[in-house]
Design a protein around this nucleic acid. Sequence first.
DNA 1: CAAGTATATGCGTTTATGCTCATATAACGT
DNA 2: ACGTTATATGAGCATAAACGCATATACTTG
Lengths: 111, 111
Amino acid sequence: MAKHRPLSEDALQLVAARFAVLAEPMRLRLIQALFDGERNVTDLVEATGGTQANVSRHLQTLTAAHILARRKEGLQVFYRISDPTIPKLCELVCGSLEKSLTRQIGHLAPG
Amino acid sequence: MAKHRPLSEDALQLVAARFAVLAEPMRLRLIQALFDGERNVTDLVEATGGTQANVSRHLQTLTAAHILARRKEGLQVFYRISDPTIPKLCELVCGSLEKSLTRQIGHLAPG
DNA sequence: CAAGTATATGCGTTTATGCTCATATAACGT
DNA sequence: ACGTTATATGAGCATAAACGCATATACTTG
C-alpha cells in the first residue's frame, strides 16, 4: 500500500465528506457521550441537551458515515462508536488546538 | 494533562470549526499540493485547477486556521503547511476510508 | 385491537458558505 | 510616475445543512 500518493478527485470528496460529518458540535457531543460505550437515544438526548428529533438526525448522519453503529433492542436503539480511528482523530485535533491556544495565551501575556 | 476529560462547549466548537476547515475538497487539494513543500499562489492555482480568486480565499481560510503559513517574497506569496498534525490526520482518515471501501467491495463480490 | 413509549422523518425556515465577477492592493521594472 | 504581474477582497447569487414542529413508524403491553 502506497503511503503518500496523491488522492483522486473522488477520494478527496470522500475525505472531505468525512470531515464534514465531524464538523458539527452536536455530533461531536454525541461521539463524546459514546466514548464510554453504548447508549440509547433517550439517554443521548439527555446527555447532549438536544431535542429528540435533532439527535436522531445526527445519529443517522453518523451511522451513514460508518462512524457509529446501531443495535436495536425492543423499543430502544443503542448506538456505539464503530470506527476505531475516531478517538485518535479527536485526540490529534485536540492536541493541535491545545498547542495553538497555548501559543495565543503566550502572545497575550508575553514575558 | 488529562487525556479523556469531556470537552467544554467552547472546545467542542473549536474542534468542529477545525474539522469544517478540512471539509472542503478544494482545501484538501491545496493541502495535498503542499505536502512536498512550499508553493506560491499561481503555482497552486495551476495545480488545483481552481480560479485565482477562489484559491486565494481558501488559502486565507487555511491560514486563519493555522494550518498553513504565509511567506511573502517580492510579488509572490508562498504557502506551506504549518501544522504537523495535518498529514497524520489525513492518513488516519484515508486509512479508515480504505477499510470502509474494502468492506463495501467485499459486499459487492462476496465469496 | 387500543394505548403508550421509543425512535425516525417530512417540511419549511433560517443561516452559513462556496463560487464567480469585478476590482482593489502590493511589489516590481522601465 | 506608469504599466505589469501576483495576490487579495467586496458584492451578489446559489446551494447545502441545521433546527423546530408536527407526525409517522416500530415495538410493547394490557
